[in-house]
């Protein structure tokens, strides 16, 4: 009888602990979402400084945008080449290999350009932003700034935010351009598709409003999400080596999942509208 009661009590304790663990995690997630949203609004409110002293933002554009150019261009080139190879393989079965230019361009402009750029941006610039701000917090540089009556959100967060928002759409556009070039090099000189058909079909079927503008909208939304996640994770990182390392990992994981989730949502809306 006693054993039965003990098992029952242990089971109850385990279930309670399990449920309270889930509750605790949920509350922590909601709290972080709220804190991140608050930081986003404060960043917008204190953004004046980033434009009044634009050299602060320009400096960050160099670090997040210009320094990401190499990885973006090389990746775009290979993505474009693979798209052309795979596309040709399928299209030739239906006798429409001339449509390879449209396929490459639409895939890049609508989806791959903004999405892959955002994923690469999160991995290259996002982690750098999180690690830098996390270390500034660990070494008390943010506290020092506060004690000097300088607002760290205006001086540190806002310029990085706008640098990301300005850089990423430009990087996504470059990605699509270089990807198309990579596709052209595989399709025309290597496979032998007609150059005129490649470009003219692309010109005829890629729409500015439906394809290019939608791609730009996506890249702007991804830029806001990726940059803000990187900034928040850095700002919220526990001031220890382990804390900064976890924050950096979270930046990549959360940014990637957010970009893929947002892509689905945005694409659905764009299809309807």
């Amino acid at each position: 009888m006693n054993l039965k009661r003990m098992i029952k009590s242990n089971l109850l304790t385990s279930i309670t602990r399990f449920l309270s663990g889930i509750g605790y995690r949920m509350i922590a997630r909601v709290w972080r979402l709220g804190a991140g949203t608050r930081l986003f609004f404060l960043t917008i409110v204190y953004s004046g400084e980033s434009f009044r002293r634009f050299h602060l933002t320009l400096r960050e554009i160099y670090f997040t945008g210009v320094m990401s150019l190499l990885i973006i261009i090389v990746s775009a080139f290979f993505v474009g080449m693979v798209l052309a190879l795979q596309g040709y393989n399928t299209l030739q079965k239906y006798g429409s290999s001339e449509a390879i230019g449209v396929l490459v361009a639409l895939s890049l402009v609508r989806e791959l350009g903004p999405v892959v750029t955002a994923l690469l941006f999160a991995g290259r610039a996002g982690t750098a932003i999180t690690a830098e701000i996390g270390l500034m917090k660990t070494t008390e540089q943010l506290s020092a700034m506060e004690m000097m009556a300088v607002n760290p959100i205006a001086r540190v967060v806002a310029p990085r935010f706008w640098a990301g928002v300005i850089s990423m759409p430009i990087l996504a556009a470059l990605f699509s351009m270089v990807g198309v070039l990579g596709g052209y090099l595989v399709a025309v000189p290597l496979i032998g598709v007609d150059s005129g058909a490649f470009w003219s079909q692309m010109q005829a079927n890629v729409d500015v409003r439906d394809d290019i503008v939608n791609g730009v909208i996506k890249s702007v939304v991804f830029a806001v999400a990726c940059t803000m996640i990187a900034l928040f994770e850095g700002f919220d990182a526990p001031p220890t080596a382990e804390g900064v390392s976890h924050a950096t990992t979270r930046t990549v994981v959360i940014s990637s999942l957010t970009v893929l989730g947002l892509d689905f949502v945005l694409t659905s809306f764009m299809m309807v509208v």
Binding site: T139, Q141, A149
Partner: peptide, 19 residues
């Protein structure tokens, strides 16, 4: 608070210089 902090200077334990 920012006005009050303008009257203060603080030396942090490890300097907290901007690297």
């Amino acid at each position: 608070i920012f006005l009050l902090r303008r009257k203060m200077g603080m030396l942090f334990q490890h300097g907290a210089l901007f690297t």
